[in-house]
Every structure is written in C-alpha cells, then in structure tokens.
Nucleic acid binder design. Structure first.
Length: 468
DNA sequence: GCGATCAGTT
DNA sequence: CACAACTGATCGC
C-alpha cells in the first residue's frame, strides 16, 4: 500500500498518486498506474469542481493508464483533463498559479515501470534538480542502465531524489525469481495439465487488479488459446491484450472471478462452473500467483509450490526485490531516497529524517498519511566508497516525540514533510465542501471568480464552509 | 441512499 | 505468506 502523501519536496506544486487534502491545491496531477491505492481522492467532487474552473490543471499519465481509468465510469469526468504522454518522450509542462500568473516550467519523462499495464515512473527535470518518482515498479537488476533518459550521453544523470517503491526494501526479500523464471514455471505446470485432455483446465486465482495481463498473453501465445476473464471492456483499445482474453468459458485456461470465489472455488472448483458444455465434469487445478522470496544465500528457488491435492502457488511479483532495489539505487546514486511505503516487518537500522515540523506550528492532522522520511541524506558524500555500503539495510520510521500509546496499531512514528508555503488543511476542513463561486447560467466562471477561487484555495480561508 | 473509513479477510 | 481489493459495519450528511 502506498503511503505517499502526494507531493515531492522539490516540486511541491504538483501531486502524484494522491488527490485529496493539500493535493487539491496542486497545479498539475500525475497518475503512475491504475491501482486504487494510488487513486485516493481521484473521484472527489471538489477536484471535479476545480477542474471545471481551471484552464491549466491537467492529469498526466500514460495512454494505457488513461484507457484503464476511463473504463471506469466513476472517473469519466477526467476525460477532457487528461493529457496522455508517450513513454520516453520528454515533455515540458508549465505549472501555472492561476491566481498570480506565476509560472514554473518542468520537464517530465515517462519511463516504463513494469508493475502493471500502463505503469510508469516519472522523471522530473527542473530548477530544483532531477527527481525520479518510481510509483510502483518491478525492474530487473541492470535495467536502469538501459533507460536512455536516466543518462546524459554515456553518464548517469545527477538525481537529487528518488521517491521509491520500497515495498520489498528489506533483506528478508533479498531475491525474488525473475519474471521469466516465474513465467516458465507457470507455463510448464499449465502445459503438463491441459495437455492431458480437453477437460483438464486451470484456474488462475488472480486478485482483482491489473498486473497479470502479461501472464495471460504469454499463456495464450504458448498454448494457442485465450484466457477466460470476466470482462473485456477495459482492454478494448489494447489489441495485444484483447486478443488473448475472452468471455467464452469454453477454454482450458481461466482467470475469471466471482465475489465468493475464495470460499467456494479453491482447489477443484471454477467460478464459471465445473462442467464442460457437454456435461463432462472438468478436471480443475488452481494456481494462485503470489510473491515468494529467498534469502541472499538461498540456492533452491522453486517457483511452484503444491498447496493441496489440486492447488498450487506460483511465484509472481509486482514489485522489485531487495537486491533489485539495491541495484537500482546504487546505479542511480540519488542524494535522497524517500520510501513510499511503510516497511513490512521492521527490524532495522539507520535512517535520516527530513526536518520535522514542530507540533505547535498550527494544526497537524493526526494521521499516518503525511509521513515521509529519507534514508542517507548525503549519499553523494560517499562517492569514493562502494555505495552499497552506504545504503541502509532496511528502513524504519523514527519514533515521534511523545510517541503513541502502546497497543496503537498505527505506525508509532510519523515524520512530517517540510512545511510548504501552502497551508495544510485539517481533517475536518477536508471533509467539508468548498464553497466555490459559480455562475448559475453556465459552467464558465467569471474572471474574478476564478481568481477569487484560487486565492481562497491558496489561503485556506473562507473556502471551507463552516459546519456547526 | 451515498460515500468515506475502518477492521478483517483473502 | 506480504499486496491490493473486496466485504461488512459504522458514521455522517
């Protein structure tokens, strides 16, 4: 789960993967991929209202992410405000303060992230240096060296900060078999089963999320078949996926789902029924893709585990392993690293916090969403050493002063972001509605209304309707 | 009735 | 087995 609050220290007037709270004030939005935990606030009525008034605020994402997003009617209102960008195409974006007219230019480049269809990393280049926001990603060791726009000639660009998918930043997850190794294990298991008879079928027990599509296309290609899924609508403009999926259940490979499938369909059942169209009972095995990891010295890395008479787990990961993350970081050598998630299992060591906001500086929302911390604030000072030794083994959140009660399940540590010029909104304010001026006859705001709206948004005053 | 949030589950 | 999303309870409007 991403716990990133939405803004980067270097370019605080843009928001990424978060669209609520203070992100409502941003001049531009970026969506790295279409998973719901990166879309918080994206269907919010306040944001919708803001877009209707704005001439310059847009959402930037890949073409595929745009398609996936708009395939959900709840996000349809974004259509005219999305600017899809090609991968590997540096694009200049003007960040305009619509109140003052103040303008800042930023160049953004989308880099493939390998997490799910359409997933990208954002490389920002501007007055505050080069910053890489990875979103969620899975890249193999050595991949960073093959990304052109991380280089300038033959040299790696100077990276001020990386906002990192730190899901597996823990030595416990040292090694995760590569995509290819995992895929080959699954291909072999599926092939051995479905070749026995037309009534031998497999059910891929996938979570309801994008990211398994390359599994479907590879299986479809290998066995010259299609995979049964619940809906094709989201892929209708993606022929290379669409051609490998079907809603016709007469196929030997299924990834269909049913709301109650976990309870009833484990092992030897199928969400779409357990008999063939001629009435013959199907012979079903289930394969659950899930993350498997191995220690540094672990030799045996079996990517398929039998979990029952007719059920298996197969290795599959949406995120880079520890060693892949270390490889990525030691290649790019950023000055700062900001982890995007609370580490799983924390037994760890060093960490450097960015300066904390003091408790008496106005209202600080009491939540765990604004945390942000940095490891090794000065990696660049260690240039003569092996950088790997400068990277902390693990990440840990530092205890907050006057910490929480024991038994509180939330992270016991919250590092606040540095205060920006923009005023933070308190929790109660955020849940209220903005009282946005509007011309009754038309959606078009009068010029003074627009300027008034943004002045109010910027000041945090009067915009919030008071509740009693 | 809708949406947000939380705890629990897979 | 560790991720992302669904379910159901609860609360507020």
């Amino acid at each position: 789960m991403s716990s990133f609050a939405g803004r980067m220290k270097e370019y605080p007037t843009v928001s990424l993967d978060r669209f609520d709270r203070e992100n409502l004030l941003s001049r531009a939005y970026f969506l790295s991929h279409c998973h719901k935990d990166h879309m918080k606030g994206l269907k919010g009525p306040i944001l919708k209202r803001k877009l209707e008034f704005s001439r310059t605020v847009r959402l930037y994402c890949s073409f595929v992410t745009k398609e996936l997003l708009l395939s959900n009617p709840k996000y349809a209102f974004w259509e005219e405000y999305i600017v899809p960008l090609e991968l590997e195409s540096p694009t200049q974006i003007s960040l305009v303060d619509e109140t003052s007219g103040e303008k800042e230019d930023l160049v953004v480049t989308l880099l493939t992230a390998g997490h799910c269809p359409g997933s990208v990393m954002f490389l920002f280049e501007g007055s505050q240096g080069n910053v890489l926001y990875t979103g969620d990603f899975r890249l193999a060791a050595g991949d960073a060296s093959r990304i052109e726009h991380l280089h300038s000639g033959s040299r790696v660009k100077d990276i001020q900060s990386i906002y990192l998918d730190s899901t597996f930043y823990d030595p416990r997850f040292y090694k995760i078999p590569t995509r290819e190794v995992c895929l080959n294990g699954i291909l072999e298991l599926v092939g051995n089963w479905i070749s026995q008879s037309p009534y031998h079928v497999v059910w891929l027990n996938c979570k309801a999320a994008y990211g398994y599509e390359y599994l479907f296309t590879n299986l479809g290609e290998e066995f010259n078949t299609q995979i049964h899924v619940r809906s094709l609508a989201m892929f209708k403009k993606m022929p290379e996926i669409l051609s490998y999926v079907t809603t016709d259940r007469r196929t030997q490979i299924h990834a269909c789902r049913h709301p109650k499938d976990e309870e009833f369909f484990q092992g030897s059942r199928l969400p779409c029924g357990c008999t063939a169209s001629d009435g013959t009972p199907l012979r079903i095995i289930s394969i659950k893709p899930s993350t498997m990891w191995f220690g540094e010295r672990m030799r045996k890395t079996n990517v398929i585990i039998k979990t029952g008479a007719s059920s298996y787990r197969a290795c599959f990961s949406f995120h880079s392993s520890y060693s892949e993350l270390k490889d990525f970081l030691s290649y790019l050598r950023p000055v700062n690293i900001y982890p995007s998630v609370i580490p799983i299992g924390r037994t760890l060591t060093e960490v450097t916090q960015i300066p904390q906001k003091t408790a008496d500086e106005g209202e600080t929302p009491d939540n765990d969403e604004n945390f942000s911390l940095t490891l090794s604030a000065s990696l660049s000072n260690h240039s003569s050493q092996n950088l790997d030794s400068c990277l902390p083994d693990t990440l840990i959140l530092q205890p907050e002063q006057g910490g929480r009660e024991q038994g509180d399940k939330r992270p016991s540590t919250v590092a606040q972001e540095e205060s920006n010029d923009q005023k933070e909104l308190s929790e109660s304010q955020v849940s209220s509605d903005y009282d946005i001026p509007c011309t009754p006859e038309s959606k078009t705001p009068r010029p003074d209304e627009l300027s008034q709206l943004y002045r109010k948004l910027a000041s945090g005053e009067d915009v919030i309707r008071k509740r009693d």
